[in-house]
Amino acid sequence: MGKMIEIRWHGRGGQGAKTASLLLAEAAFDTGKYIQGFPEYGPERMGAPITAYNRISDDPITLHCNIYEPDYVVVVDESLLASVDVTAGLKKDGAVIVNSAKSPEEVRPLLKGFEGRVCTIDARVISEETLGRYFPNVPMLGALVKVSKIMDEDAFVTAMESSFRHKFASKPQVIDGNMAALRRSMQEVKGL
């Protein structure tokens, strides 16, 4: 049996963490993987902490529970570090990717002694410069694929472009911005 990769997303309602997990699932599906993408629904309101999950595998996945020992954790909102134990159960040989203007060295002390790899990406600057607004999920997705190498980068970029063309069929003007955000995040993520 091939290795199954498990990913946990931490964000706040309205930031698109759930959408990012679904986009990742779709992109991984397009590269021939078995996938799961699911959110943990809580009180659904803007700004409330939310969790979403991905499983990606070469073999069919039968598990239908949440993820407690992820290979990767993505923190879409830096302020969650103060209130949520984001690295709980995270494997030592895995990595946490935090949306922050800080360096990985500056973020590590906030991670309750996590010894594995810490990566940061300034999704706010990337999003605002490429999309003109703050949508952190696409840059975080790009950074995750770069850090985790869960799929071939070119195949991922191609799958995402096709997904954006489908999703934004009625507003094609945002496709280029999202693609630029994706490419920039893959170049600018720190802590590789």
Partner: peptide, 12 residues
């Protein structure tokens, strides 16, 4: 079928 676990989870 199970709410959220099956209804809202994307799978192959």
């Amino acid at each position: 079928f199970d709410g959220f676990i099956t209804s809202h989870s994307v799978e192959n």
